[in-house]
Nucleic acid binder design. Structure first.
Lengths: 273, 273
DNA sequence: ATCGTAATTCCATATTCTGAAATTTTCAAG
DNA sequence: CTTGAAAATTTCAGAATATGGAATTACGAT
């Protein structure tokens, strides 16, 4: 679980600490954590941690678990998160595509986006076949570089940025089937040429994932569409069909999104056509 | 939109300001807001607002909208919010009930919970009939006291607390079909006796909502189950059936939740039976 | 009932955050 | 292409805020 770097900003130490607490609580899961655990985990004085946690509690971002001395993330955070999801408009624009792909293929379809050093599951749609995945529910996240969607996104990020991310995530990779930074770098090179990412059981045995990046007119990358299925279901012939399907839907999505985003993009190299 | 009070806590002004900015951005919706707007809205010096926003941006809680000078809530917040939803375990425990109720009735079913002064939609399930509602999507919220779910929750909160909430929300009520604090107080009294809340088109013309509180063994209130339908579909005979159905499902939910929560509840008056 | 641990409060102090001012960037209009 | 006004960003000395050690209280295990 790579944590976002905190060092650069000045003048907001308290804020950094509070967010650190929220992130740790997020990792803690359903049972939450004790204040002292959080204080330890974030290297804070108990008194400081207590003050921050109390404040977050007053705002509803954290709540106490009745009958225990533990706290967990609160519903106000949940509500804010829901607004964040709507806010991007990205999900709304892509949802019809997810529905169509799931209906046509019968497989699970995911909409993934980048958040810092991670790949976040923004939306998902189940087809007839439901299988195990790493990010699971909407809102789940894994380090960028793990999984085909994250690799597809990395591949089309500016090279320097991609390398920085991979370096930052390197230690986190080990937890995923002994992935290494070099593996990711190699994979990304292929993906850049192919235009899509295919994981044929490398990440989860027996599960194949096909991801295609959603690129915008200004060459930035909005996210990726992913189809997951059991490897047995992905025969070479089917792959072609799926790629076409993905391409078609991404064209639709670009039509919906670009008018928003492109308004006077940076006066840089604009890809011809 | 009542904002949570901020005054009491000491030693976290910066945090309060940051959360205020997040809340305002949440209200801003898909197009986000300018920094200067946020600074104004939160009564902050531009420089201070800038510092806070930048920090939140570094953590991914806020993101810039490409090609504009606007910012919106970020995906990291979305991810945190998703963890908050899972974290309560409440949703997971109740979801099967939602599915059963939606299947049996064909109507829309909601799981609502309290967050500060608001009622939050924690989960929802569509039946055959889909209709307009106020909280809409999961994560949506309205002031406690508006809508049958919020009233059901208020009715079984400690009286002093309920009154404080109603007083705090009084001005916010006006926006909802000219509701008044007195209306809410009167309604709550009825609900306490009946054991459920029925809105027969008072809030949204032509839409009826039936809500029943989910109370725990320690007399605290976890939330409410709500069924929404067009008023035409709610005939007196049907009401009985729906009430039974809700009661049955809430019994199931209590069985799932209580083991967790009750661990040594406060040694206070435990309602007999 | 007793003790060790965790939570909470208190408060003088240092540190962090503040906000006015200066600088740079952006954008609309001429 | 200029120009100018508004927004964003940076800087910095000073002031208010957050800090964390110590004291106190609450909890829960034995």
């Amino acid at each position: 679980m790579p944590k976002a770097k905190t060092d650069k900003t000045t003048g907001t130490q308290l804020l950094d600490r509070a967010i650190s607490i929220l992130n740790h609580l997020g990792d803690a899961g359903a049972d939450g954590a004790r204040m002292s655990e959080l204080a330890d985990a974030c290297s804070l004085n108990a008194s400081t941690a207590h003050r921050i946690i109390s404040s977050l509690e007053n705002h509803g971002l954290i709540e106490r678990i009745a009958g225990t001395r533990r706290v967990r993330l609160g519903l106000a955070l949940f509500a804010l998160g829901a607004k964040a999801a709507d806010g991007t408009g990205f999900r709304r624009a892509c949802h019809p595509s997810l529905l169509r792909i799931a209906a046509e293929t019968g497989d699970m379809v995911f909409l993934m986006a980048r958040s810092g050093f991670n790949t976040v599951c923004v939306d998902r749609q189940e087809g007839a076949y439901v299988i195990e995945t790493l990010t699971g529910q909407v809102g789940g996240q894994i380090p960028l570089g793990v999984g085909s969607a994250g690799q597809a996104i990395l591949a089309f990020l500016p090279e320097a940025e991609a390398e920085a991310i991979i370096a930052a995530n390197a230690t986190a990779y080990k937890a995923f089937n002994q992935l290494s930074a070099d593996d990711v770098l190699a994979r990304i090179k292929e993906i850049r040429e192919l235009g899509y990412a295919l994981d044929h059981g490398q990440l989860i045995e027996g599960i194949s994932a096909l991801a295609m990046p959603i690129r915008l007119n200004d060459a930035s990358i909005a996210g990726a569409l992913t189809i997951n299925m059991t490897s047995a279901r992905l025969k070479p012939k089917r792959l072609e069909g799926l790629l076409e399907l993905l391409q078609r839907e991404i064209a639709v999505i670009r039509g919906l999104i670009n008018p928003y985003e492109v308004r006077a993009a940076k006066p840089q190299a604009r890809p011809a056509g």
